[in-house]
Design a protein around this nucleic acid. Sequence first.
DNA 1: GTGAAAAGCTTTAAGCTTAAAATAATTTAG
DNA 2: CTAAATTATTTTAAGCTTAAAGCTTTTCAC
Lengths: 167, 167
Amino acid sequence: MEGSIAIDAETKVHESPADHKDELRLWLRLLASTTLIEREVRRRLREQFGVTLPRFDLMAQLDRSPQGMTLGELSRRMMVTNGNVTGLAERLVTEGVVSRRRAANDRRAHLVRLTDKGRRQFRKMAKAHERWIAGLFAGLSKREVDELLTLLGKAKASTRNAVEKAR
Amino acid sequence: MEGSIAIDAETKVHESPADHKDELRLWLRLLASTTLIEREVRRRLREQFGVTLPRFDLMAQLDRSPQGMTLGELSRRMMVTNGNVTGLAERLVTEGVVSRRRAANDRRAHLVRLTDKGRRQFRKMAKAHERWIAGLFAGLSKREVDELLTLLGKAKASTRNAVEKAR
DNA sequence: GTGAAAAGCTTTAAGCTTAAAATAATTTAG
DNA sequence: CTAAATTATTTTAAGCTTAAAGCTTTTCAC
């Protein structure tokens, strides 16, 4: 059984440009799942807290670093460009939820961190956010959540590896 | 077996604000995986074809509908707002890869479709795109790809269900 | 048929995001 | 020590994206 399947797959590879439909479907489904959740989270953050997702994300990073973080580190963790973080942080400073000052040792770098107000606001939002996410995944068993975690971990590793090689 | 697990879960809910860390980790990992792939695809589309991801996405939808599609249908399939599609389509019409005309029966609606030039361009990009995706997932076995497809299908269903209820 | 509601689309204003180029400070090579 | 390379960040221009408000056309209830 398994043998014949493998042979079929091999045969296909040789008789025509390999078909990668399953991988393509996987990518489309991954993207759709993410978009669906992201859209809902965005909506609730706006309606219930009047905040945007990027701002919430930035605050979430800072919440884990009480001592603050440089803009560069923020942009790496958020997987967005430097310029993006510059503008986002600026708006959050204006709002008074983030503070910003020069780094002690390196005069190029700037440290940002949550203000007390920012931390209070974030903690409140984070609690709701965690409940929302649990609710959105409520149709999955604990086992399925674990499997997804594992498989997505592999997918991430595979992607990183391929991206690495492509350079 | 199932009973005891259910009781544990219940107990947790009562003794402390339920902890949903695994679901949260799952969401963060899902988002990270998607972002990683999306960033790479975006980069290659730009470098190798001088096209943006949203434009590629729009063309991909149209490629499946030779008879054309209304802007509303496009926006639903792409999971973006109407206004977004209006602008995107406009730029693609200017480029000459998409055509646009009033619908025959409904004078509110506009049908867009790929021009011959657009279709040729898209097909070329789509081939490369399919290879890229296969390459990014090359570290996964066929079995793992299938499992991910299944689990993500469940995740999508779970999300849709939760979003539905929340209204 | 007529008025109200819904559907399809566009416009607007604001904010997000990127790539690329520029500036300034630090590190490294020789 | 000095020139070159690297690092941290900002700026710019272009495009993407959204929510909300508005316009036009169609559908629905009566």
